[in-house]
Amino acid sequence: MFEKILTFTRKRHVAGLKCAFTGHRPQNLPFRFDETDGRCLRLKAELRKLIVQMIEQKNVTHFISGMALGIDTYTAEIVLDLKSQFPFITLECAIPCETQAAKWSERYRNRYFAIVERCDKETLLQTHYTPDCMKKRNRYMVEHADFVLAVWDGSPGGTGMTVNYAHSLNKVVWTLNPNTFSINFG
């Protein structure tokens, strides 16, 4: 059974293309939860460059984050930081269920809510958790995007399923490998 999607918009986005983010959770990244690790810092710098490239060269003005720990959080924070340089860009938080961050540590919950507070649009896909709510969130993001920026090492899992779904809908997928930092613009 599908629940009604609830949306709260703070700011309308400028007509342009849309990009959804997908990627690994911290435990599946080479540096795990250590954001001071040089590999994490490099990954964030590469993501920032790719997002700026999308804005400047591809007319992407709206970004969608699924708000999970890891890549979703990093990219949301990068977009919010870039608003000072590109005030016309918008961030949408696609939230799978109201309790998404309920079991996270206080530090990560505070980070989550700080992003949601500053985003331009909140989309709550369903009120209660179900085993497929993350998949529904991922499908929503892909269906509402022109581009997908994925941080993916090719391993099976939610990121891989999201990338495959994007390809099945003929979306443009840019993939950044978190181990090698190679980029596939496909």
Rank of each mutant, 00 (worst) to 15 (best):
L6H: 05
R10I: 01
K11D: 00
H13A: 11
H13D: 09
G16A: 09
K18T: 13
F21S: 00
T22M: 10
G23P: 07
H24Y: 03
P26E: 01
L29S: 06
D37H: 13
R39F: 14
C40Q: 13
R42S: 15
L43K: 10
A45W: 13
E46W: 14
K49T: 09
L50K: 08
I51Q: 03
Q53V: 07
Q57L: 05
S65E: 05
G70Q: 00
T73F: 02
Y74A: 11
A76Q: 12
L80Y: 13
D81C: 15
L82M: 05
K83M: 02
S84Y: 15
F88Y: 03
F88A: 05
E92F: 08
P96E: 14
A101R: 06
A102D: 04
K103W: 06
R107A: 15
N110M: 08
F113Q: 00
I115G: 03
V116S: 03
K121P: 00
M134P: 08
R137H: 12
R137F: 09
R137I: 01
N138K: 09
R139C: 08
R139F: 06
D146Q: 10
A150P: 10
D153N: 01
T159Q: 06
T159K: 07
V163H: 04
A166S: 12
N170S: 13
V172N: 08
L176I: 11
N177T: 10
I183D: 08
N184T: 10
F185G: 06
